[in-house]
Write a protein that binds this DNA or RNA. Structure first.
Lengths: 252, 252
DNA sequence: CGCTGATTTGAATTGTTTCAATGACCGTGG
DNA sequence: CCACGGTCATTGAAACAATTCAAATCAGCG
């Protein structure tokens, strides 16, 4: 169902190199520079642990190689908002070490594997390889676009629309990294996390999910999601995938 | 009330050069490169006009020199969400021409003046002056942080908290560019726009504003806002300004 | 098997929206 | 100078979407 025409890429490229070259054409040398940067280590983290927490001083950046993560912010009284979901291949803020402290936390929603790249190595590559930097700018622009769409979701859509829209977004984003099959996809997000991502309560999220199941929009059980009729789901929330910038590199 | 220690900057620096050197120390040459880039023209736009619209192909980037703007997205049925407010000195997406099309619109909330910089000129400077590029990365990171905080505002705060938080944010951001005095500041945002920025209806926004006036939290009339007791306003929404990264350059 | 975390249910309440109408303000042209 | 049209702000009452609180059920796992 994914309609992506990827440029021919060596099989042993890391998921990060694949993702970045989808944004901007990168030759073999550049891709291998990314592989070297990212391939050194794949640090595992357990479900529920923080990659970093709000207020931490950051000295490196992270690349998510496997598993799902969530950026979140907490209010003093315990309210939580998940401000974005991180999927395999997502970058976690190039140059974030330039800021004083982390303004949000990143939690692992599943067991994850990340590559940690220190400031020195990263800045060296950024300076010497402008094409890679350009791909990372595009990545940052798309991330910002998604964040804006989340604002629309939280501010102006009903509960049913919010959940539908989130499912549509994840469907498309997971397609891009080849994690969607005809049988749906692994969906490890609990209803509490879903609620915190859509600005609803867990109770209400549960009721809307039941409504969606009743209407045949989704089949969600045991951490697995099936979307029997994507077009129907997209119609519910008037989903327009252009904010995901599926073919950024054609802008030339 | 602003506690910024700006490095000594020539009086004739553009507001953009001032802003960017607050993020990252820029020497005279770099600042003058920015001034040249930005100083060529100051295009005026009338209130209510679009700088660009959702779906436009972009070939240049904009710097807001004067006035207030808003990024917004529309839904098919007319619902609107303002996803961020642009203040004097704000950049409008470095490298945005790398994307296919604009995923949102930018409207002028007041008469504005913008500098338009073409792709060629911009990329030249970006490539030749890594310090400026670094300052723009920091700017992009802070913009992203603000966008995340807006998600928190929309998803997890009550109407009173949302409006209070927005006022606090604007207070701090305007302080940074020297637009706040003891007598408050010019506040050209209508209640409808305020509603679209906070995910509320205009009617409800109106009622909450009245409540805030009654409680002495704000004095808002004829496009002028006075905050008699900033600490009290910040207490209402548990405002924590660290997401604005007031001293980004100290992260060294 | 029992524990823990995740999901489901019901009932009452509340915050926010909707709809519809009125009032204030402001610049413009007669 | 005042009438005019437009935008913006304000008000009331009824309806609704979502929350709160509390408890029960289910699923996965050591």
């Amino acid at each position: 169902m994914s309609s992506l025409d990827m440029p021919a890429i060596a099989m042993n490229d890391s998921i990060i190199a694949v993702k970045l070259s989808a944004h901007w054409p990168l030759d073999r040398q550049n891709r291998e520079a990314i592989n070297r940067l990212v391939g050194r280590s794949a640090i595992p983290r357990r479900t529920g642990t923080d990659l970093f927490a709000q207020g931490d001083r950051l000295t490196s950046i992270f690349f998510l190689l496997e598993g799902w993560g969530a950026r979140y912010k907490m209010l003093a009284d315990g309210r939580r908002q998940i401000v974005s979901l991180l999927l395999p291949g997502d970058l976690c803020d190039p140059f974030c070490f330039l800021l004083h402290r982390a303004d949000h936390g990143v939690a692992a929603l599943t067991p994850i594997k990340v590559a940690e790249v220190g400031r020195g190595q990263f800045e060296e590559v950024a300076l010497e390889r402008p094409e890679i930097t350009k791909a990372m700018w595009i990545n940052a622009l798309i991330t910002a676009s998604i964040q804006r769409e989340w604002c629309v979701n939280l501010g102006r859509r009903t509960a049913l629309e919010r959940l539908s829209h989130l499912f549509c977004e994840l469907y498309h984003r997971l397609c891009k990294v080849g994690m969607v099959t005809d049988a749906g996809f692994h969906f490890p997000v609990t209803q509490l996390e879903l609620a915190d991502a859509t600005g609803l309560t867990m109770v209400h999220t549960n009721r809307i999910l039941q409504e969606m199941r009743r209407k045949g929009l989704i089949e969600l059980q045991r951490r697995h999601l099936i979307v029997p009729d994507l077009a129907a789901l997209e119609r519910i929330c008037a989903f327009d995938p252009s904010y995901l910038h599926p073919a950024a590199q054609e802008a030339l």
